[in-house]
Simulated assay, not measured.
Amino acid sequence: MAAWKQILIAAVVLVIATAAWVRFFPGAPEILERWGIDWAVASTPRTDDARNAAQAGSAPRQATVVAAPVTSATVNDRLQAIGTGRAKATVSVNPYTAGRLVEFDVASGARIKAGQVIARLDSETEEIALERAKAQRDDAKAKVDRIRALRSSNAATAVQLTDAELELRNAELSVHDAQVALDRRSVTSPISGVVGILPIEAGNYVTTQTSIATVDDRSSILVDFWVPERFASSIRIGSTLTATPTANPRNSYEGTVTAIDNRIDDKSRTLWVQATIANPADSLRAGMSFQIVMKFPGDTYPAVSPLAVQWGGDGAFVWAVEDGKARRVPVRIIQRNTETVLVDAEIDSGDIVVTEGVQSVRDGGDVMVARTGAARPAGTPAGS
């Protein structure tokens, strides 16, 4: 095919595409006017109303539209998350030294106090060492008493008395050391709480790495949960929340935020938060899952019908009706819901926006509202 024919075909296709864009794209006339191409606007086909008006020698009549009032809705006002509970304090009790486990002084599920003996190891060697240390202490004390008596009659020197007192002090420390070694043959709980299932039986040989028992302080339950980063600035220490056990949704508990992590996790984009729930009835257990609900003031935005949102060359906009005139209002979409679209725009709740008949509306043109649609409930979208 000759080059001039290819150029001619390309020019024809371009002209047809341009004419179709001017004819069918809603924002084309406005864009061409901003570019200063008035001839293209004049060449676009007129609507029947405009043609009739031109033939009658008068201005185009009012555009007839259907409109609806603007409502309002709140976002980021409610947080829902799943949390995992754990005991206020949990301790795995290990013996200080190795030895044969002789007996348990508690049973699984028993409530114990801090310092209470849980189990005992064989302690014959430590008992003998304690008695020997006590005998040496008593001998050293008697020696000091004798030297003091001799010292009063100048039969002993001050150096002899000092050496005897030092020997007595060392003997008392030996007694204390032997007593500590004997006491450590009794395994005690460092916290108050409930004893879990005992993992071993009496008679087993244990070391310092052997767990004798696990003790949980369930006076309160700590719940760990993770929240989206958009709520990071809204959560504070002391903020209240409601925790509902997943396994028993009929019961709910009030709690407070007691700890907040100092950074956002860069993989999940969530913030680690910890809450405390009182457990006076001991009905909650570590490891339970909870449905966490928190409420915030949130952000309120105008809500319009999805039909009211139009798109032009410069983005989204709506047609607001003020005193019978149409006003083009640029909008920024915040959130799309089933029945409404939340927008950031210079409109208020109660304002009227066009939902049907937008194709005949022009900025500043006369508008006649044939029917005002009922305001759809905006609701309060969940924030999580």
Results as ranks from 00 to 15, higher is better:
residue 264 I to M: 12
residue 304 V to T: 07
residue 315 G to Q: 08
residue 316 A to E: 00
residue 267 K to D: 05
residue 320 A to E: 14
residue 321 V to H: 12
residue 274 Q to Y: 00
residue 262 N to L: 12
residue 292 I to W: 00
residue 339 E to I: 14
residue 284 L to S: 05
residue 315 G to N: 05
residue 339 E to Y: 13
residue 325 K to F: 13
residue 305 S to F: 09
residue 310 Q to F: 05
residue 341 V to A: 07
residue 293 V to W: 00
residue 257 V to W: 03
residue 280 P to S: 09
residue 309 V to S: 10
residue 295 K to F: 13
residue 318 V to I: 01
residue 302 P to R: 11
residue 265 D to Q: 08
residue 305 S to V: 01
residue 260 I to K: 05
residue 280 P to T: 05
residue 303 A to C: 03
residue 289 S to A: 14
residue 272 W to S: 13
residue 251 N to W: 08
residue 307 L to C: 08
residue 259 A to F: 10
residue 284 L to C: 12
residue 319 W to F: 02
residue 304 V to W: 01
residue 313 G to E: 13
residue 332 R to S: 15
residue 327 R to W: 00
residue 269 R to D: 14
residue 282 D to Q: 10
residue 251 N to E: 13
residue 282 D to A: 09
residue 320 A to G: 15
residue 303 A to N: 01
residue 284 L to M: 15
residue 339 E to Q: 15
residue 312 G to A: 07
residue 270 T to Y: 01
residue 313 G to H: 10
residue 289 S to M: 10
residue 259 A to C: 02
residue 328 R to N: 06
residue 311 W to Q: 15
residue 314 D to F: 06
residue 325 K to M: 14
residue 288 M to T: 02
residue 270 T to L: 03
residue 278 A to H: 03
residue 272 W to K: 14
residue 322 E to R: 15
residue 316 A to Q: 02
residue 323 D to S: 13
residue 276 T to K: 04
residue 330 P to M: 00
residue 313 G to L: 09
residue 266 D to V: 12
residue 302 P to E: 12
residue 311 W to S: 15
residue 251 N to Y: 08
residue 289 S to N: 15
residue 292 I to C: 09
residue 280 P to V: 06
residue 298 G to R: 12
residue 293 V to C: 06
residue 324 G to I: 04
residue 268 S to R: 00
residue 303 A to T: 07
residue 271 L to V: 14
residue 308 A to M: 09
residue 301 Y to W: 08
residue 292 I to S: 04
residue 296 F to C: 07
residue 284 L to K: 08
residue 341 V to P: 02
residue 299 D to F: 15
residue 259 A to M: 03
residue 297 P to E: 14
residue 279 N to A: 08
residue 252 S to K: 15
residue 340 T to K: 02
residue 293 V to L: 11
residue 274 Q to V: 09
residue 276 T to L: 03
residue 256 T to P: 06
residue 312 G to R: 11
residue 257 V to Y: 00
residue 301 Y to C: 05
residue 310 Q to T: 08
residue 304 V to K: 01
residue 326 A to Q: 04
residue 260 I to C: 04
residue 316 A to W: 10
residue 330 P to Q: 07
residue 338 T to C: 01
residue 339 E to N: 13
residue 302 P to N: 04
residue 281 A to D: 11
residue 321 V to T: 12
residue 263 R to S: 11
residue 298 G to I: 08
residue 330 P to E: 03
residue 284 L to A: 14
residue 273 V to A: 01
residue 320 A to W: 11
residue 312 G to K: 13
residue 298 G to Y: 04
residue 337 N to T: 14
residue 318 V to S: 07
residue 268 S to M: 05
residue 315 G to A: 05
residue 323 D to R: 03
residue 265 D to W: 04
residue 314 D to S: 13
